[in-house]
Design a protein around this nucleic acid. Structure first.
Lengths: 422, 422
DNA sequence: ACAGTTTCCCGTAAATGC
DNA sequence: TGCATTTACGGGAAACTG
């Protein structure tokens, strides 16, 4: 009879951060004649949650609303609550929420709606409640909260099983891979293809990757760390989603980021290609990083692969990724710097692919020379020893010796008079 | 008899932001025998401020404290209030604080302390209050608040003249310049020298600059915009202070930033120096920017000056300033890029001056090639027309034409099958 | 000591008020 | 409408708390 709408966290419904406003809406689906009636609705958080096992929250702000006839429009009666805000209940007795079994992002909460409907002296009480909600206190918990919502929706149709994560079911790889791809299509505009999912499957399942019926546990997805890494599979994948959303959207949507490729596959793909052929993939060793790998031929004809140190959000916010690809240069001393990136795999000339994604440098009319940052890799030339540049004493000195030298030089400077001295 | 200490905003006492915790302390200076007594202190904000003219605030949190004998230590009796928080009083009647005459950062407020001292049935009441305080609601108002505190302290000894900015007195340039220099020595570690102050004086006073008795008005310092600029003198100067604090501290403290030089002076200083001699100065056209100007000799022997587009906090947080100086390159097509910066004015070889301020690039052991950003200025070579690089069609095309071309190329790409298509 | 969690608060963006 | 001021809240870091 009533259909509760969900509170909305920007892009991530069902996750509420304490102290941050959210909105919710209830719709009365019954069709009514426009006579004399009144509807009063009250929202309560964690209404009949058994205390002790998990944290409990309440709505700080006003949570009751009376609806008049004016609110009746476009065929259905609805009440919207705005500016709601959650705060944790503090326990008088020593009992503490969150008894250690579940992490906070596995705790499920709910929002209840109690309505009191009055028509001509007759009163009808109605009650309903929301799907399970996750409550967090910092955005850093958002990925953990979101994967909980994902797992819940994937594996149960129950509208309100708050104990779900007490013993969470497993998912088949075919179920999981679909929902992972859906994450990318929803948040980044373009889902994952078969090759990308197969690499992810291999990473998560090891040798069982090919078997789409293989069961993945909740723990494997989001709680255990990837062997040798300090983060879980989901944390890693979500960091990539965030990177795409903030810094790589156009490049991702043009399908120019292969992204998920194993290193073996990468070499297989590149080894027979033109020198200067490159592909883009995400870092497996660090959260939220993207790198490019290109192939070149050594002096004696052997195939060489190079990958640049991954770019993370800090770097990318100083310089957009397409511009990095355009401007990337390898510098060896005394040689004209060269951009080794020529063809996006398999054989698309770089500027054809990225041309329209480049930022046109706004050339100002100012008395200033414009300046950009460009990404370079400096190679210590392993050709013949070129005489070192006169500008700076390139250390064959140790850093220690260098510091001492600098100190002495500075002493001399300080004893000079200059327009800088006070 | 009592000495109130000030609430502490980090680095900027006397300025309190609403909703942000502050601390205050009162000391009872009288020496007492350790007998049976009790001291109760209450703090009140805006205690007897006449309502209507300015905003009024109150202390949200608990504001009373009882002191026991234990608190008596190191010879004086003191009460410290922590976690105090301010909120604006909302007026029941239509009267609104801040009636337009003063800006919020010119409104002065105060914190009152009422103490009730009980010894053996005898009660003594005491009262005192703080120096004037400025209340802000956003850190963006901090510079405005701080210059008010500065002006107040500079020009009056009255402990509590809340109407000070109703008709603020003028300061002589000699008074003002001293306090400006003091700002730099306090917040950036090194004050301003005569030459720097003289440029500032010229900027603020025009032709009266040489006269240290010349009077500067409050408005001229912090309310009127600099002619042709959308910011006041103080806003400009404070943006530079912030830039130094966050990004230029070591360079500033080595006295390597001349900073405040007029363009005429800059040319006079550089024109007879070795080519490649450069100096560092702050941008006058934009808030919080630093640039370098270097001198070089043209083909036919004439002296040329170049200044790079100023670096602002965004750029500097991607790349420290010393590294910018080390790595800066001017690139002309097909030519080995060169760093035009050779000698810090007057004649200090660049690496002698900045050597120990460079960030040592941590060369990782990874399978990755390390990569940095380097600042470059690309010169459209005005020598003979070199054949354009094969990599990208350097526009003699208009951007419009270029976009169209790119679009067509992309259409072709999309109709290909590639490992990127889903 | 430590990890999971919350609080704090700057700084940007958006909303609000006049 | 534009400007001054406040509110909102993401994100990094510090503080808390078993």
């Amino acid at each position: 009879e009533k259909q509760p709408c969900m509170p909305t966290h920007p892009q991530k419904p069902l996750i509420i951060k304490t102290g941050v406003q959210f909105t919710t809406k209830v719709r009365l689906l019954v069709k009514l004649p426009e006579v004399d009636y009144q509807l009063k609705v009250k929202t309560t958080f964690d209404k009949d949650l058994p205390p002790g096992r998990v944290r409990q929250f309440f709505i700080l702000t006003n949570n009751t609303k009376v609806m008049d006839i004016e609110d009746y429009s476009n065929g259905c009666l609805s009440v919207e609550f705005r500016h709601l805000q959650l705060k944790e209940k503090k326990y008088i007795n020593g009992t503490k929420g969150n008894e250690g079994l579940l992490s906070v992002t596995e705790e499920l909460h709910s929002l209840s709606f109690e309505a009191c409907f009055t028509v001509q002296g007759l009163t009808i009480d109605l009650e309903t409640c929301s799907l399970p909600l996750v409550v967090i206190s910092n955005v850093s918990q958002l990925p953990g909260g979101w994967v909980s919502v994902m797992w819940y929706n994937l594996l149960t149709d129950e509208p309100r099983n708050l104990a779900f994560f007490g013993n969470p079911p497993r998912a088949t790889w075919s179920q999981l891979s679909e929902v992972l791809s859906w994450q990318f299509s929803t948040f980044a505009g373009k889902g994952l293809n078969k090759e990308q999912l197969s690499m992810l499957g291999g990473k998560l399942l090891g040798q069982h990757a090919s078997c789409s019926d293989y069961q993945v546990s909740w723990s494997k997805l989001s709680k255990e760390n990837i062997p040798g890494k300090p983060f879980s599979f989901w944390m890693w994948l979500d960091s990539i989603l965030e990177l795409i959303k903030k810094h790589l959207l156009p490049v991702w949507n043009e399908n120019y980021i292969m992204g998920f490729v194993s290193k073996e596959m990468e070499r297989t793909l590149l080894k027979d290609k033109e020198p200067g052929t490159f592909l883009l993939r995400f870092s497996e060793s660090h959260l939220g990083g993207i790198t490019f790998t290109w192939v070149e031929h050594g002096d004696n004809g052997e195939v060489k692969f190079n990958s640049v140190e991954p770019y993370t959000k800090n770097r990318l916010s100083a310089l957009p990724f397409a511009d990095i690809i355009r401007d990337y240069k390898v510098i060896s001393e005394g040689v004209v710097p060269e951009n080794p990136l020529k063809f996006l795999y398999p054989d698309i000339p770089k500027d054809e692919a990225f041309g329209r994604l480049y930022n046109i440098q706004p050339s100002k009319v100012h008395p200033y020379i414009t300046s950009t940052l460009i990404p370079i890799s400096q190679l210590r030339s392993n050709t013949t020893t070129t005489p070192s540049s006169c500008q700076s004493p390139e250390p064959p000195m140790t850093p220690r010796e260098f510091d001492m030298l600098s100190e002495h030089l500075c002493f001399d400077i300080n004893s000079m008079s200059s327009p800088y001295s006070e």
